[in-house]
Design a protein around this nucleic acid. Sequence first.
DNA 1: TATGAATGAGGGTTCATTCAT
DNA 2: TATGAATGAACCCTCATTCAT
Lengths: 228, 228, 228, 228
Amino acid sequence: MHCVDRLDYTLTMRSVDRTGAARPRTFTETARRAQIVGAAVDVIAEVGYAQASLARIADQLDISKGVILYHFVGKEDLVREVVAHVWSKGEAFVRQRMQAAPSGVGKLRAYIEACFAYMVGYPNDVIAIVDIARSARDADGTRLFDSALPIQAVTDVQKLLIDLRNSDQGTTDFDPAVMALAIRAAIDAVADRLRREPDLDVDLYGRELATLFERAIRGPTKGSHSCQ
Amino acid sequence: MHCVDRLDYTLTMRSVDRTGAARPRTFTETARRAQIVGAAVDVIAEVGYAQASLARIADQLDISKGVILYHFVGKEDLVREVVAHVWSKGEAFVRQRMQAAPSGVGKLRAYIEACFAYMVGYPNDVIAIVDIARSARDADGTRLFDSALPIQAVTDVQKLLIDLRNSDQGTTDFDPAVMALAIRAAIDAVADRLRREPDLDVDLYGRELATLFERAIRGPTKGSHSCQ
Amino acid sequence: MHCVDRLDYTLTMRSVDRTGAARPRTFTETARRAQIVGAAVDVIAEVGYAQASLARIADQLDISKGVILYHFVGKEDLVREVVAHVWSKGEAFVRQRMQAAPSGVGKLRAYIEACFAYMVGYPNDVIAIVDIARSARDADGTRLFDSALPIQAVTDVQKLLIDLRNSDQGTTDFDPAVMALAIRAAIDAVADRLRREPDLDVDLYGRELATLFERAIRGPTKGSHSCQ
Amino acid sequence: MHCVDRLDYTLTMRSVDRTGAARPRTFTETARRAQIVGAAVDVIAEVGYAQASLARIADQLDISKGVILYHFVGKEDLVREVVAHVWSKGEAFVRQRMQAAPSGVGKLRAYIEACFAYMVGYPNDVIAIVDIARSARDADGTRLFDSALPIQAVTDVQKLLIDLRNSDQGTTDFDPAVMALAIRAAIDAVADRLRREPDLDVDLYGRELATLFERAIRGPTKGSHSCQ
DNA sequence: TATGAATGAGGGTTCATTCAT
DNA sequence: TATGAATGAACCCTCATTCAT
């Protein structure tokens, strides 16, 4: 959950004028937009992107469909805002948690556990964004966030892994691309399972996964389970 | 890709008469159903479950929509058949590949590589079933395969891991449920990426992932990268 | 009303298959399409192109909107068919009437009177096509038949005028482009007035207009109102 | 372009109070109304009446839709004002040009050329009013200016023709109603063509049309092309 | 005066499904 | 067996209009 700056995150920023000029948002407008984005997150998390119609989202708030289209250019615009908002929130959350993290392999554990903490705190956010990344397509079937979202997330992890290997000579010769993919996939899979089983012990999964990937990275001789 | 027997796999079984009586399928009927299932797989793999309308599937075969609904009760019925068929095919493929596999940790590598071999041989099968498992819902948003599919796959891997640990004392104390989830998630994620990048070196991913999880399982002292 | 061959006239021809291949039309299909085109003509003539929604056209026939979209790709497709159909009918009508016409200036009179005869026989056809040519635009405001229709009609008249001048040396030095425009404009204007006043003596207008333009073409010495 | 007095021309007149009482307009109010009317003309000329939404007109001025509805009762009210304003402007323009015109047939030429001069000077005015006269309808499809506009214009020409015939005995026995319709139709058709081809040599059309109708009116013996 | 906010009707279109043939 | 025909619900979106501020 990183790198919000590479996605347009506009929820609290500026509207686009009739003339195309940026215009600061009203208090009411900002509030409404946030409210709609929140409802969209919940509805998408509950029924899935494909079934999350504007009508359903509007119903959830007990407003008319028109309100949504007054505040957003169209459904795609709303979804992009959902993604930007959730991504940005998550990114900030994770970054802040990682500041205190040690360097080296511990950094990865910090990342994974931060992701899971976010998932516990805002499960719908995570469920929704994962679903959007997988399902959101326009009429032709072209994915809306095909590369933007999943690749972004994986790339962020990949960078973390490369840093990690540079700062710690004792790692195995793992392929950072493959490892990053596996890590993100594992995290997202827990989001899926969490949706089905809301009582899931997410923290346990976090700890176990961190250990799993630590072992895969540190290799046989340097682990806490060292030789001798 | 296991355990088809726990899903309804009806492609070669029985039809239901308009009197409600079950009757064996004719050869033609079986062929038509298989043809339709195949087309559905291709269309879903190409445009995604949500965009895979009956019309699109019918177009692919140059038949009318009605034919599909003559052979299947409805769209849901067709999708269930797709899942059953693909699952069964994949399960047989993987099982056969694993017969020759050594016991112990090698078994896991054999499983992963078999999955990837299947993915290379029948990419659309895998892409489609992964998409269905994630996206397929009815009108209310209720998932069609919420537990059936993903849990099934993970459970199969989990059993394999438990067997593995029983037959090989030198493993780490990993949690089989978590490890199984991570393994399946990694495999499915490659299917996703394969859809985006058809030239992906799937075998490389297979080998790397196998090594990754081997390391996580075998722990520090027993790996091929042993201590000395 | 000429030159149907330069517009796609498909009412009695072929459908386009799912595969893009042409396919002969069912009897029923042809009949339905004709019925829908007829209703569209009437509705457009009555309430104008902009107000002629699919719902209104469907209501007129007491069928559902879906039927129209089953037989036509979309509203634009239907409108194109309306234009092609009306144009072709009118063109055949006018051409047949003109076969018996004398050469020289009489040809123009024959043309004008044929147009008016068609207008009397099928007023809605003419009212509708004139309205479509003027009003039909897509979402951006781009005209659907901007050049196709009006220019076509004017060009046809222009050709007739050039032939006429070649075969009859005694004409004035009128500009065929301007004259053609004036002739078509006058004819279309009568269609407009006919809509408002259904009891209009169209034949009178026809004769008078023919005389008017004859005078403008033949000049002072050659007219039936000759010197002496 | 005549006879504004027979249309409600209210741009500089009176507003209606919320108590229902009429009150004179403030300077600002008049200016705003004129501004909005001008924008409406431009938008209608550009995209056509049917696509000229209040939003589009407001955008053009960088104001909110509400402003328009503050100054005008509704869209229909605005359109009526547009018509009244353009009509009045055009009528004054043409009348002034015609003052210097000779009597007799020259009067008609002066009229036609005045119309074309106006068209060159204010093309959007003419394009817009022609489009409105043809397309503007309310929700039921009832025309807004069904008789008012086109009949008005034709009647004005008709009067001119009758005067002309009274003052000049040597004309043919043309029907003034038909001739007037043909003249107006020709002028309006050039407006249409001008929209499509902004570089059109409008003056040429004006001269040619004037000659065309002169010939039709003066007949064989009295024309400049006289019989020796 | 002017705006932002909201509404509700209606627009075209897609789609799974039903049914007679 | 298979098709063409038709339906009706749902979809996203546009628009003129209302209203409180």
